[in-house]
């Protein structure tokens, strides 16, 4: 690990100032991702700005939305009674991620900012355009069983590893940000990016910008929801494919639907067209299968991940069946 300096910020402004000044400074929250990356030499910040003292831990339900501070712990959010009652999809997705120990450290902001688990990104002896722009993509032509089937580019086929973010994109969350140029709001679906020619940029957060909160508008998805995560072991593994499914039912007729996938793209992958195809239909396996087929349009596999072309639609159907059979 490279030598680095460490400061603790006591206000958002102080934190933003501290990070904006240095060329290579970083916020640190739970540290569960950043420290690993530093130990591996993948990220080498000169300065860490500890933001854990900032008053950004609140979870508040108002009449039109849920507000979650960026420093709320993954475990706290998952166990929050309001979240469990009104936004159970988020709770399920959080509990599918990492391990209890990690969730006790990990923050909502850190979770959104966590970097891909692509092994080429992690191994500094291998090429990776995300880590070292221009060095090539190791995963293309390499070991790519875990990699993207949607929205990849010839520069990068990595996936975003978060579970929480799959639920947040499905629930139309908004990211609250404050930075050197003031505050702004970013729709969750626009927060993360596709790799294109600049895979080194995971998301659209500007330099020095601090995530302060995530807000989710109130919604009717309290009952017919399911977060399905398919992984190589029963717990503590990243998703091969995950599906966040939420339905609003009128009898057996689908009034509205939300669908998103994890483990398939460089960002949490919202399935808007598949959602559309469900509206007004009855909640049957056949209709779910149709939606899954719509969802898979434009999917593209690489050498080791073609199984995802089958696993992904199967998982969509399974998640929708689970969501309706409660």
């Amino acid at each position: 690990m490279n030598p680095f300096s460490f400061v603790r910020a006591n206000s958002p402004k102080a934190a933003i100032d501290a990070v904006s000044k240095g060329d290579n400074s970083r916020f640190i929250a739970g540290g569960t991702n950043l420290l690993d990356l530093m130990k591996n030499g993948v990220m080498q910040p000169e300065k860490l700005v500890d933001i854990n003292n900032l008053p950004l831990k609140d979870i508040q339900l108002s009449k039109d939305k849920l507000h979650i501070g960026a420093l709320a712990l993954n475990s706290t959010v998952a166990a929050d009674n309001q979240v469990k009652a009104q936004f159970p999809l988020l709770s399920q997705a959080l509990l599918a991620g990492a391990s209890q120990q990690l969730r006790n450290m990990a923050t909502v902001g850190g979770n959104m900012m966590q970097r891909t688990r692509c092994s080429y990104f992690y191994d500094t002896a291998m090429p990776c355009n995300k880590r070292q722009p221009g060095s090539g993509c190791g995963a293309i032509g390499g070991v790519n069983r875990m990699h993207a089937i949607f929205g990849a580019s010839d520069k990068c086929i990595a996936v975003h590893p978060s579970d929480m973010c799959v639920a947040l994109v499905a629930l139309d969350a908004t990211v609250l940000v404050t930075g050197p140029k003031g505050e702004r709001k970013i729709p969750f679906a626009d927060f993360h990016r596709l790799p294109g020619d600049t895979p080194e940029k995971d998301n659209n957060l500007g330099k020095g910008e601090l995530i302060t909160a995530v807000e989710i508008p109130n919604n009717p998805y309290t009952k017919n929801i399911y977060y399905l995560k398919v992984r190589d072991r029963a717990s503590y593994a990243f998703a091969l494919v995950s599906v966040a499914a939420a339905l609003e039912l009128d009898g057996n007729v689908i009034k509205s639907a939300r669908l998103a996938m994890g483990g398939v793209a460089h960002k949490p992958w919202r399935l808007a067209a598949a959602e559309q195809s469900l509206i007004g239909k009855t909640a049957t396996e056949e209709n779910f299968r149709v939606a899954a087929t719509v969802a898979m349009e434009n999917a593209k596999a690489y050498e080791h991940n073609s199984f995802k072309l089958q696993l992904a639609p199967n998982s969509i159907v399974t998640a929708l069946l689970k969501a309706t059979s409660v």
Binding site: R117, Y120, M126, G142, V143, R145
Partner: peptide, 25 residues
């Protein structure tokens, strides 16, 4: 243990990616 034969390097040389069973298994 998965090798990238182009480089002769392991691609999952850590406990996050090399999966030993956990309690739930």
């Amino acid at each position: 243990a998965v090798l990238d034969h182009r480089y002769g390097r392991y691609a999952n040389n850590n406990f996050g990616d090399y999966h030993v069973p956990v309690h739930a298994d």
